[in-house]
Amino acid sequence: MGNGYKMAVLIKQVPDTSSAAGVNPDGTVDRARAKRMINPFDKFALQKAIETRAAHGGEINVISMGPPPALEVLVEALEYGADYGYLLSDRRLAASDTLATAFALYKAITYLKDVDIVFTGLQTTDGDTAQTGPQIAERLDVAQITYCETMEIVNGRIQASRIIDGGIQKLETAPPALITIANSASRLEHKKFANVHMVKKLSRDKAEMERRIKTITLDDIGAEPERVGLLGSPTVVGKTWKLGEKGGSCQLFKGDKPSHEVELLVGAIKSDGKGVEEFVA
C-alpha cells in the first residue's frame, strides 16, 4: 500500500440531544427547528480513520446522507482533519428506513471507487438501530467487524478487537472491510488550528470548496429511485408513543453548610414516608 488506504467514514447529522430546541409537545423532533450536531457515535469512526491515516497514509472521505444542512457536518469533519466530503442529498431519499439507507450508502461507496476500509459509528442517536453498518457490508460483500474497539493494520491485514458479551474477540481480515466502531474506542481528537484555518479559507474559495465537498444525487451514484426513500422502505411505523418524561422533579437542597444540606435532604426523605434510618448512622 504505497499510497495508504482509501477510507470512507459514514457520518450523520442528528438533532442536538443537549438542546430542547425543536422538540414538539408530543415528543417528536422538528428537524428544521432543532439544533444539529454530528452523531456522537460517528466521531469514534472518524477518529479511527484519522489514526489509520496517521499510521499508514491514505485519504479520508466522509459521506453523509441527508438534507442540505447536513453539509455542516461535512465541513466540521474537514475541520477535524478529513480530506473530502460527499453529501448524498436527494428529495427521493426522504423517509428511507435502514434497508433503503444502506442501499443508498452502498451505492455512494461504490461511486467513490476502490474504498479499502469503511468506518461507521455503532448506531445513531436518532434512529438507534445499529443496522445500517452491517447491511452496507452485506451489500458491498466485504468483511465486517462490528463493535470494534481497537485496530491496527499489520502487513496489510486488519487486526481488530471487538467487544462481545463478557469479553473481547480478536479478529483478523484483509481489506476491503467495513468496521463499526464502539463508543468505548479512542475519542475524537480536538480540532487542529491549521485545519480550522484551512476550512475558513475554503469557505471563501468556491472552486476549492466544491473540489473538497461534493453534493451527489441518486443519479450520480446510479441508485434506482424505487429502492430508496419511502418506496424502498418496507418498514412500517405503526405508532409512536411518548413514554413520559424523565426528570423535572429534581430538588436541590441548599444551605450554609453541607451538613445542613444533608439534614434538609434527610428531612425531606423522612417526610415522604420512606424511612432512611437504616442508612443514616
Binding site: L252, K254, G255, D256, K257, P258, H260, E261, L264
Partner: peptide, 10 residues
C-alpha cells in the same frame, strides 16, 4: 431563607 443560599460545593 435557606433556599437562597448554597455552599461553595455547588
Amino acid at each position: 431563607a435557606e433556599n437562597t443560599i448554597y455552599t461553595t460545593a455547588d
